Amino acid sequence: MARTQAKDHGEKRDAILEAAARVFASEGFDRASMAALAQEAGISKANIYHYYNSKDALLFDLLDSHLKDLRDRLRATPLTGLTPPEQLRALCTEVLLAYQGADNAHRVQSAGMDHLPPEQRQILVEYQRDMVKQLSQIIAENAPEVFAKAPAKLRSVTMSLFGMLNWYYMWNAGADAQARRIYAAEVAALTLGGLKAL
Rank of each mutant, 00 (worst) to 15 (best):
L88F: 11
G81S: 08
R129Q: 15
S136W: 13
H106R: 13
M113A: 06
D114N: 05
T93D: 08
P117Q: 05
V132A: 10
G112N: 00
H115R: 15
K133F: 09
A98E: 04
R107E: 00
R107Q: 04
R129V: 13
G101A: 11
E86T: 14
Q128G: 13
G112A: 02
A102I: 00
Q122M: 09
L79T: 11
E94W: 02
Q120T: 03
T93E: 12
P118K: 13
M131N: 07
G101K: 08
A98L: 04
H115E: 04
V108L: 01
R107N: 01
L82P: 08
R129E: 12
V125I: 10
K133E: 13
P85V: 03
P84H: 10
D114R: 11
V95N: 07
V132L: 10
Q100W: 03
C92H: 05
R121W: 02
D114Y: 04
E126S: 09
Y127H: 15
A102V: 00
L124Q: 05
S136Y: 10
E94D: 01
L96Y: 06
K133Y: 06
R121T: 01
V95M: 15
Q134K: 14
T93V: 09
A102S: 01
L91R: 15
L97R: 07
G101H: 10
L116F: 06
L135D: 00
L82H: 08
M131W: 10
R121M: 06
P117F: 05
A90P: 11
Q120N: 12
L116V: 03
M113H: 04
L91H: 08
R129Y: 13
Q87I: 12
T93P: 06
L135M: 13
Q100H: 14
A90G: 12
M131S: 11
Q100R: 14
E86S: 12
L91T: 11
E86I: 15
Q109R: 14
V108I: 02
A90Y: 12
L96W: 03
Q100S: 15
G81T: 05
D103T: 09
K133H: 10
